[in-house]
Write a protein that binds this DNA or RNA. Structure first.
Lengths: 147, 147
DNA sequence: ACAAATCCTATTAATTTGATAGGATTAATA
DNA sequence: TATTAATCCTATCAAATTAATAGGATTTGT
């Protein structure tokens, strides 16, 4: 199955939680994990990925916690997914400059590449703000976000 | 990483091989595996998936082998991928009627659903004939196949 | 000093993916 | 009808990835 792993999915929900609850700052990992119903320990592994991608900031020690590093309208779902799942490329050899030996490989490769690029574009077109809007509108799509 | 596994990729190349070499019929597994540079034993596991999806026909015994069950223009890449990778749904709960408990899950879910649907549409829009054309035009995209 | 929090590293369990092996069955043909 | 060439079937295994847990180190506010 072609799928997004828990890393990416939890990350998206984590970020959405930060966005929606941005009035209280910073926000505890414990609170998020509890309210989203995911394991605190596991979420803890996702956080460094978001952090080193510059999407969240953390403060340590008592009264510490997490917050978005930018306004929700300036954070895209593509950034969140790439931070946690790695680059969107449905097959390895989509990377530029890779040689290929067989024409059949090339043909399918360029198809996978186009597919990956389209997916990236779609993800880039969804901001955390869009997701907040969906959240506040009870999950109704408020815009046609896919090109 | 979000990716297409070897099953789907080998299947696509297998089908393309059948399409391109459809003059000689039927075609041996051994020939395809050898020319595509993949393990015969492994390909053997992919074939039943294509067969039960009704995409190829096989004849057993001496002079046996494989052939497309339809004209290449009537076989889509979506069929090939779904036969081998399962339905295109980037997350489990994209399936219809599944309840969801948390709004954040719903929000992200409807995004994953839209993404999956777009991907399906793109795949459905590529026929084996399109892939043959790409093959014969040295891999140049001959049409803008993605919606 | 203490408590509350993030941070870090190692380990393990479970699942999926990729691959191999050995034989059973089918069909053409000499 | 024996032989040969092929698909078909099932079981097993190895490797990689994903998901989860555990335990402690570090930082910071009071």
């Amino acid at each position: 199955m072609i799928k997004i792993s828990t890393k990416g999915r939890y990350a998206a929900r984590f970020m959405l939680y930060l966005a929606v609850n941005s009035k209280q700052n910073p926000i505890l990992l414990r609170e998020i994990a509890h309210n989203e119903g995911v394991s605190e320990g596991y979420l803890e592994h996702v956080i460094p990925l978001l952090k080193s991608a510059g999407l969240i900031i953390s403060s340590r020690g008592a009264k510490g916690g997490y917050a978005l590093s930018r306004q929700p309208e300036n954070i895209t779902l593509l950034e969140i997914i790439e931070a946690t799942e790695g680059p969107i490329q449905l097959v390895e050899c989509v990377a530029p400059n890779s040689q290929c030996e067989k024409i059949s490989v090339c043909v399918t490769r360029s198809i996978w590449k186009k597919l990956s690029d389209d997916m990236s574009k779609s993800l880039k077109n969804i901001s955390l703000k869009d997701m907040m809007d969906m959240y506040e509108n009870n999950n109704r799509l408020v815009q046609d976000y896919v090109i």
